[in-house]
């Protein structure tokens, strides 16, 4: 069995490496070795699910997942609803911890998005749970709760409208005292659909000629708001998300195929465009929204 060792920090910074490793993994059964994982965030969890699902579909056999050895990590993943989704993707090498009822510190568990009503459900849930985290933890104004819900709705719809495949969404707030001196909210959305290049190809590839690829498709959608629909009302979701995330001095990044594009605030050192990664299906979006607790 081939082993895919996961990094100790399975998060938005390492998720591209995990997807790359999954895309380059040989045929046959794969073991995802998470024993040394000590930190996970929504982007990391959805990346792990996507990597596992991709290999399960490609190889026709469920990959195995060895759970983190550090006792806190599986418990946290259980609270985030990770294992409910993971059980449909992986063969787990041990029984995951049960999720205690009444956990209230989770902003948005790992939630599958397959239908329109899933988006309604997510928005409804976040409306109920996000107020405290956004206002008390991140010190956003009350109006941000609605704006955050709108962003979530748009980012989830990206799955339904463009991927034509199911996906997941998750969100949680963390204390980044060491790195940023404040709290940060992380939202992740992943799908294994046809990706931005696939979604835009029929309508837009011809005009780009030889330059057409994952990076140009991402630039077309992310920067210029192009969509596959001729309707001029379409293509606003990503633009409006970027606008709102900028207002909050946050970061937004989308990985699709071999490329990744991002709006990078001054506190982040990620590159705005990365190319040449392994080709991985679908789209993988994450948003980082810093709290206003330190710098306003």
């Amino acid at each position: 069995m081939n082993v895919l060792a996961l990094p100790s920090s399975l998060d938005h910074r390492s998720v591209d490496d995990v997807l790359d490793a999954a895309a380059r993994a040989p045929d046959g059964r794969i073991l995802f070795d998470a024993r040394h994982v000590r930190w996970v965030d929504p982007a990391g969890m959805l990346g792990l699910l996507s990597g596992g699902r991709f290999l399960r579909d490609r190889n026709g056999v469920a990959p195995r997942l060895q759970l983190p050895e550090h006792a806190d990590v599986p418990g946290y993943m259980a609270r985030m609803g990770f294992f409910r989704a993971a059980e449909e993707v992986f063969e787990l090498d041990q029984r995951p911890p049960r999720r205690a009822k009444g956990d209230t510190d989770v902003l948005l568990e790992v939630t599958p998005i397959t239908t329109n009503s899933d988006v309604h459900e997510v928005v409804d849930r976040v409306q109920r749970s996000a107020g405290t985290i956004l206002t008390r933890t991140l010190h956003y104004p009350m109006t941000a709760v609605v704006q955050f819900s709108v962003i979530l709705s748009e980012v989830c719809q990206n799955i339904l409208e463009h991927a034509e495949a199911p996906g997941w969404v998750s969100a949680q707030a963390y204390n980044w005292q060491k790195r940023l001196g404040r709290h940060v909210l992380i939202v992740a959305v992943s799908d294994l659909g046809r990706g931005f290049r696939g979604s835009l190809a029929d309508e837009h590839s011809a005009r780009f000629g030889d330059r057409w690829g994952d990076a140009t498709a991402l630039e077309a959608a992310f920067i210029h708001g192009l969509t596959r629909f001729p309707d001029t009302g379409r293509g606003q979701g990503i633009q409006q998300m970027r606008k709102q995330v900028r207002k909050w001095n946050g970061a937004i990044a989308i990985r699709s195929g071999t490329a990744r594009i991002a709006d990078v605030p001054d506190w982040d050192d990620s590159p705005p465009l990365r190319e040449g990664m392994a080709s991985f299906p679908g789209a993988h979006i994450h948003l980082l929204l810093p709290g206003m607790d330190a710098h306003g």
Binding site: N116, V119, H120, V123, Q157, L160, E161
Partner: peptide
Amino acid sequence: SVASLYAHLVTRPT
């Protein structure tokens, strides 16, 4: 219209 319990005006089909 959408035969649901949700009152939010979200998603294009809605």
